[in-house]
Amino acid sequence: MNSDKCCCKQSADCGGSSQHVRTLTPDWGVSDFLGMIRVRLGCGRMSYGMEPGLYAMGSPTPESPVLATANYKLTVDVLRRELGDRDLWLLVLDTANVNVWCAAGKGLFGTAELTRQIEATRLAQHVTRRRVILPQLGAPGVAAHKVKSQTGFHVVYGPVRAKDIPEFLDNGQDATPEMRRVTFPLGERLALTPIELRQQFRAALILVLALGLTPVIWRGWDQGLWNHGLRGAMAGVACWLAGCLLGPALLPWLPGRAFWVKGAFLGAALAAGLALTGVVQGLLPGLGAMLWLGAGVSFLLMNFTGCSTFTSLSGVKREMKAIPAQIAAGTMGLVLWSTGWWL
């Protein structure tokens, strides 16, 4: 086994396999932190990857466990941080730099890629037990029984969260029901909001500019911009923040099950708040704000279904039937809102 590893490092003539085992350490450098911040903000996620293949953490022996994961660098970074100085093998699959959950949904983290890597890295020559631990969230892409029949490797699904892996390993590779449950706590929801905010930024900017500048037509620069326009722009910004930040944060406490319902409530509450603070003035514009903010926040929060970990495709398709109503309410709301400019 060892001679096999050495040969690859020393010469290119290695029986057609250029696989050698690289090593990983648990420590993060500055660039790892900066990289994490960058991808959390939605920048360069699709190119934040690392070389697929077999890696050694610590000094693994042929008895050490094998963990498979995706080649999204943040995923591997979190794994090596959580696993500390344990001795184990890490089999990094080529998922086109996409994380395990998303890659499994697309079949990139899948049966074919797993069997390919098991063979390409000659995994069976490195370990005595033909057993590979996969993250549970990879299960939508991998058919464990097919991996077994094609490679002889038995697939064990590990916990959902990387932080539970040490306990899982110490428990004889047995995951508790809690370790198998996907949750969606506040911290996770908030971590997704920067991407949400920037995805909707352009639409929000258009709304803010339209609400801020159109009143000038009727009211002139002074009144139009600094009174009506400013208040409209504030309402527009509030809509964006409510749909992309406040809504995700308050998700469990908003009434209703459908996201569009939750969003409509939040938007209407926001309009009431703006009326109380004097940002919205008058009955018709107030009603209008209720409608367009309700529709806007409803739509934005409905988009958050894509990030959530408990919404189903069938459910989201049903929710999308609300889009015509959102468009109607939004249009009507904006018309009512504009009465404040010309009435």
Binding site: I195, T305, G306, L313
Partner: peptide, 30 residues
Amino acid sequence: VIAGVGCVTGLLNRALGRKGDCCCTEDSCC
């Protein structure tokens, strides 16, 4: 089960014939 990602952005993009199948692969970078 009919499996898939319940993602409004992705479903809308598909319905409108645009690229970007879902939020998790979209790279909205500078």
